[in-house]
Write a protein that binds this DNA or RNA. Sequence first.
DNA 1: TCTGGGGTCCTAGGACCC
DNA 2: TCTGGGGTCCTAGGACCC
Length: 426
Amino acid sequence: MYALIDCNNFYVSCERIFDLSLENKPVAILSNNDGCVISRSNELKALNVKMGTPFFQLKPLIKKHGIECRSSNYELYGDISQRVMNVLNQFTPEVEPYSIDEAFVRIKLPENQSYFEYGVKIRQTILQWVGVPVGVGFASTKTLAKIANHIAKKRADGVFVMPGNSMQILNDLGVEEVWGIGRRIAKRLHAIGIYKAGNFASQEQSLLKKKFNVMVARTALELNGINAVPVEDVTALPQSISCSRSFGSPVFELKHLQEAVSDYASKAAVKLRESKQLAAGAQVYIQYYPEYNPIYREGGFRGATVRFEQPTAATGTILNSLLNALPKLFIKGRRYKKAGVVFFELSSTENVQEQLFNFNVNSNTVANSENEKQTELYKTLDEINKKFGSNTIFNLSSGIEKPWKMKRDHLSKRYTTNWNQLMTVK
DNA sequence: TCTGGGGTCCTAGGACCC
DNA sequence: TCTGGGGTCCTAGGACCC
């Protein structure tokens, strides 16, 4: 049996742990750059403010309804998320975190207990130990557990167990509500007369594969109680590690793009080292706004792929190759809105792939040890930055003024991850 | 008149998720 | 004027191989 545990209004709930004044008020958490709403309290949902509403559209309502706004504080949310996962691990070792605010777990029921009772216990424990309300949905497949979770969240007790025969429920559920069916596919399903999850589930596999794809066909299987979404290997390395940001205001100069790319690459490299991984290469890209000239109205992006001589996590080596690639992508006169870096082909530092044909043994050994030395150096810098604040030591190529820096005007404190920002009790 | 068949690897793009 | 960031998987088509 699967259970899906999903935190209610997660970012809002995190802020509320430390700021009791947010209770019972409409609260909005804003995306990076304070661009749009990405998490809403129930009170804000009741005001009919939609997910993704641009902040400037929300502004006129703030005074009128007493809305509280916060910039997103991912350091805080990441830490709270970890605490929730730790609690789940006390219930079962088979915890599969799916996103920052939810996890699939596989449950073997203790003697003399029902799934419902067990769900209530999980829910109460997380609420008491971490302070975050969650919904718990039980079902035989992940896709059904998602649906059970949606139902759970609408109930006062926050727990729902999918009955063995789920047809009744699926017949009442719009197909666009099903996990794995996005906007595009939903539209195409509607076009052939399929509106309800129940109807979708009873379609022939061959038809779904032919008219759509294997993913859609798998989703239908899952609704029939047949597991088709594989169990994730939680120890597997990720496919990629990235960092990207929209700029606080448009960027025109190559110099500033280089600063931003340098900053983002440094941040992503910290993630690499934290998770003891090396990257074989990286993709760097810059994204621009539509031009003023109406003939060239399209915005767009340009990217370049670089490969490192050796898999590496050393910021210096990485910056050298990335900053070299950037001038070729830059076109003068464009207004740039965003830049990003993606590391790919990751490997564990505990298992380095050596070169097979190591003809020039000496130079290669030197390169390797140089690489290792650099990585060690940056690990030390990471520790200093952890201790004294994240920008204590940084590469000068990231710039000092940072005119491109994102806006975060409503940021809460890093209550749990920075000694200087601990809560004080008077 | 008439010119094969089977495979792999890589990349870009599309679709989805939270 | 002003709309985020970080991921995953699959497919089609081109290049290349024998």
